[in-house]
Deep mutational scan, measured.
Amino acid sequence: MLEGKVKWFNSEKGFGFIEVEGQDDVFVHFSAIQGEGFKTLEEGQAVSFEIVEGNRGPQAANVTKEA
């Protein structure tokens, strides 16, 4: 699992990017966010995740919000 911070997330469109120190930003789709209820992320929020190869390159999977 990697750790990063949410760079930005558009809850209307359901996607955004996660910043990872020393690496390129990683695309995140709302469907990759773990948990119940409305799936969104806040700018600057700490998250842990895995990287998988998507249709358009690397993207986040199994995203969990850090306490």
Rank of each mutant, 00 (worst) to 15 (best):
F30R: 14
T40Q: 09
K39M: 08
E66N: 15
E42L: 12
L2M: 11
Q23R: 12
V52K: 15
A61T: 12
L2E: 06
G57H: 05
E42I: 11
F49Y: 05
I18A: 02
S31E: 04
H29M: 06
I18S: 00
K39W: 06
F17S: 03
V6Q: 01
V28Y: 03
I33T: 02
Q23N: 10
V52F: 10
F27S: 02
M1N: 10
K39P: 09
E42M: 11
S48V: 13
E66P: 13
G37T: 06
G54T: 12
S48T: 12
R56H: 14
A67C: 06
Q59P: 01
L41G: 02
T40S: 12
G44M: 06
H29Q: 03
K39L: 11
E43M: 15
E50H: 10
L2K: 14
G22H: 09
G57W: 05
V47P: 00
A61K: 10
K7V: 06
H29S: 04
L41I: 06
P58C: 05
M1P: 14
F27D: 00
F27L: 04
N10Y: 07
P58A: 12
G57F: 05
F30Y: 12
Q34W: 10
S31W: 10
L2Q: 10
F9T: 02
V26E: 01
V6G: 01
F38R: 11
I18G: 00
A61V: 10
I51D: 01
G4H: 02
A61P: 01
K13C: 05
K13P: 02
F9W: 15
E12K: 14
S48W: 13
H29F: 12
K13W: 09
A46E: 08
N55W: 14
V20A: 08
E19M: 13
V26D: 00
K5Q: 06
Q23I: 11
F38P: 11
G44W: 07
L2C: 04
I51S: 04
V20D: 02
Q23C: 05
N55Y: 15
H29A: 03
S31T: 14
G37F: 05
E19G: 10
A32H: 08
N10I: 07
E53M: 15
T64L: 14
E12C: 07
A46P: 12
G57S: 06
G4F: 02
F15T: 03
E66R: 14
T40Y: 11
F17D: 00
I33C: 04
G44V: 02
V63E: 00
V47N: 00
A60W: 01
A67S: 12
D25Y: 06
E42F: 14
G54F: 09
K39G: 06
E19W: 14
K5S: 05
E66Y: 15
F17Y: 08
S11G: 13
E42V: 15
F27V: 02
I33M: 05
S31V: 04
A61C: 05
G54S: 12
T64R: 15
I51H: 04
S11W: 12
E19Q: 15
A46W: 15
R56N: 09
S48N: 14
Q23Y: 13
G44C: 04
F49N: 00
F38L: 09
V6L: 04
G4V: 01
Q23K: 11
M1A: 12
P58S: 08
V47L: 06
A67R: 12
L2Y: 13
H29V: 03
E42S: 10
L2I: 15
K39C: 04
S48G: 08
R56Q: 14
I33V: 10
Q23G: 11
N10C: 06
E43Y: 14
F17R: 03
F9N: 00
E12W: 15
F15W: 15
V26A: 04
G37E: 09
F30N: 04
G4C: 02
F27Y: 08
A67Y: 14
V52D: 06
K5Y: 07
N55E: 14
A60M: 01
G54E: 07
V63H: 00
F17I: 06
V63Y: 00
Q59K: 08
G35M: 15
A46V: 13
Q34I: 14
